[in-house]
Design a protein around this nucleic acid. Structure first.
Lengths: 196, 196
DNA sequence: ACCTGAACACCGTTCAAGT
DNA sequence: ACCTGAACACCGTTCAAGT
């Protein structure tokens, strides 16, 4: 791969997302970002009109990543049970994406951020509902399950915001996924359970 | 009354609350506040260590006002029905207090603000529960009513944040209060209703 | 006890000039 | 097309000096 000789708006947006992931919204500051990118802050204003425009671009990039891109990672998996498991694993792997969701959700009172958070949440919820429906649940039960799973996910994000390293891994992650798939409603028949 | 010759920490905290009410949390800025108070920003640092300490003081003042002070306005009213009506009227009169509640609630993800918002909410809820209980409701119904009333209040705040002048007044306020007191559960006996 | 004035660091924004 | 460099406004913070 060749060395980047000049930056694009996308580069700035990604740098902004990185900054948000470990410093919150206020970490989107032109001068520090320019420093990190190795250019002067003056150059920023060739790509964007102002700081707000950068935040907007970052939000757009995030929405893109969190909808089409993430779904694409698992939509190839035909077995709905396996697909759901993968969704939970992907969603809980790596800090960055979880941190971003957490930060944006916490800032959803901001008129710039709120609508994006809502769209992303609805998108995820719909995807989960489809998965559970494909598992054989009635529409209402699929909805209940999806809400439970999403709420659980958001809740673990909240807990992690205190201790960013405390994301479920290994055995804990397996327990977590199992909980999201079979604790409240008997998702398998007895014979299925014996086979597992 | 005599002319104030020098400022106190309380004066700064109140000025901060005024600023928050019409500009949000970020409007708590030392230099603009100093300008408004007619002093140089240097003098601020005699009263507070930094901006954060001022925010903290403002939050404390708000919590004080919104708990003991507001309750004191209506606790003298013996008839629980009348007392409740007054609470709703007081809570919905004037922008400032409502705006403050709205802004703080929207910023409750801030670790400095969240705990205060929670305490104030619990306090108000408990007060409402007591009122409804005194009205003769069972503990569970009193709780349900109090939650409904408080949620309705918070919801109207949310709506108002778009149009700050749109707070219920006159006939609308009467309707609002009536809704909070008698729409879901028959709060009065038939004979009471005929008397009204 | 309370405030001024000047200083410094830091960030947002603009813009002419460079390649 | 993308960036530098310098400028300006604005805000947080410090501190010696004033009353």
């Amino acid at each position: 791969m060749d060395v980047k000789t000049s930056l694009s708006a996308t580069d700035w947006a990604q740098a902004a997302l990185d900054a948000i992931a470990d410093g919150g919204i206020e970490a989107v500051a032109v001068e520090p970002l320019a420093r990190k990118l190795g250019v002067t802050k003056g150059s920023f204003y060739w790509h964007f009109q102002n700081r707000k425009a950068l935040l907007k671009a970052a939000l757009e990039a995030w929405e893109q990543q969190e909808t089409t891109d993430v779904v694409r990672q698992v939509e190839g998996i035909d077995d709905p049970r396996h697909r759901l498991q993968q969704v939970f694993r992907v969603a809980n792997s790596g800090f960055r994406n979880g941190r971003l969701t957490g930060v944006f959700a916490a800032s959803s009172s901001d008129p710039l951020i709120g609508p994006v958070v809502e769209r992303v949440a609805k998108n995820r919820l719909d995807f989960l509902i489809d998965c559970y429906a494909a598992l054989g649940f009635t529409p209402e039960d699929a909805r209940r399950w999806a809400m439970f799973a999403y709420a659980t996910f958001m809740g673990t994000l909240q807990l992690r915001s205190d201790d960013p390293t405390a994301l479920p891994r290994g055995r804990a992650l397996n327990e977590y996924v199992r909980l999201c798939m079979e604790s409240l409603i008997p998702a398998r028949t007895e014979s299925e359970r014996r086979r597992a």
